[in-house]
Write a protein that binds this DNA or RNA. Structure first.
Length: 298
DNA sequence: AACCGCCCCAACCGCTTCAGA
DNA sequence: GTCTGAAGCGGTTGGGGCGGT
């Protein structure tokens, strides 16, 4: 007696996704939006289990995913956040909206772990490190986690308020501004790769997965976390910067302006976050600051 | 050129959490 | 409050790529 498999094992395809499957998935999501993954395989005719579809979308096809090498700043953020949050890759990924939790997890396991080990070997105690056995660190971490939960809860509430019909000004026909339009870019990429690696030699086609540099799109998590940070660090509202997009613009133009606004804004917020995280020699001060700022919540 | 071993990362598995009935 | 199905998450795996011999 075990748990029921998420899908019928028989007739379910496993292994790497083909460009055709990606196309089907992306075009379906572009039309209907993500969600109801359970019904995905039947509605699209894909011989994949629902989990596989969701994973493929969130880790690979979703707009706004940056692939390729991690920057030094990203590395440092991951190291700091991992020290604070532990192996909560989804939480860490929410601070790096262009990276997926899977990406970050892989990068941590393959690169950063070794790097840190090396560093710790060289320096005795890591410059990044709170020693995780330190009791003050443990206390700090516990409070940070509670803060994070509060943040997420508040952000969710804000988000649902913002999305309620009477309050929202409706940037998009979908319930959240996740930039589905840019899925066309993904499709274009897919097609490009597909054409380059013509259908007769599909098996070796991985070009379509090459480093994409789509501007960051705001997904649910990033919005939540951006709002959470706004609420605590006093950042200017993300939405306010969107208000000057002219309603008379063509959808394409306004979308593109919307995206670039988001990009610039989110980037500036992230760079503030990065600055906050990277302040040399302030590991403990970081905790103190967090605690100071959140004293109201507890 | 062939083989081997290591590395990386996409994808899978199974447990946990969430949400609706 | 309980149950159940769906979604989310983190650990793990397997296969392809690549460098060394």
């Amino acid at each position: 007696m075990g748990r029921q498999p998420c899908c019928d094992k028989a007739g379910v395809k496993k292994g790497p996704w083909t460009p055709e499957e990606d196309l089907i998935l992306v075009s379906y999501i572009q039309q209907h939006g993500p969600g109801n993954w359970r019904a995905f395989p039947t509605k699209t005719g894909l011989l994949r289990c629902s989990k596989s579809c969701r994973l493929r979308w969130t880790n690979y096809l979703r707009p706004g995913i940056k692939r390729g090498n991690f920057t030094e700043n990203e590395e440092k953020m991951i190291i700091h956040l991992q020290a604070l949050l532990g192996n909560r890759w989804a939480a860490i990924a929410s601070y790096l909206p262009e990276r997926t939790d899977n990406d970050i997890k892989n990068y941590w396991n393959t690169h950063l772990k070794k790097k840190l080990k090396k560093l710790q070997g060289n320096e005795g105690s890591s410059r990044y490190g709170f020693s995780s056995s330190s009791s003050s660190y443990q206390i700090c971490r516990g409070q940070w986690e509670r803060k994070l939960q509060t943040d997420i809860h508040m952000a969710k509430k804000d988000l649902s308020d913002a999305l309620s019909p009477e309050k929202s000004s409706d940037h998009t026909s979908y319930p959240k501004p996740s930039g589905y339009a840019s899925s066309t870019e993904n499709i274009a990429k897919l097609l490009k790769g597909w054409m380059r690696n013509n259908p007769w030699k599909m098996a070796d086609s991985t070009d379509y997965s090459e480093e994409g540099t789509d501007p960051m799109k705001e997904d649910k998590n990033s919005k939540e976390m951006a709002e959470a940070f706004q609420s605590h660090l006093g950042f200017e509202s993300l939405d306010s910067s969107l208000s000057d997009i002219s309603p008379s613009m063509s959808p394409e133009a306004s979308h593109s302006q919307y995206e670039s606004k988001q990009h610039v804004n989110a980037q500036s917020q992230l760079s503030m976050l990065e600055k906050w995280l990277f302040d040399e020699g302030k590991d403990y001060q970081l905790c103190d600051n967090i605690l100071d700022q959140n004293v109201l919540f507890f």
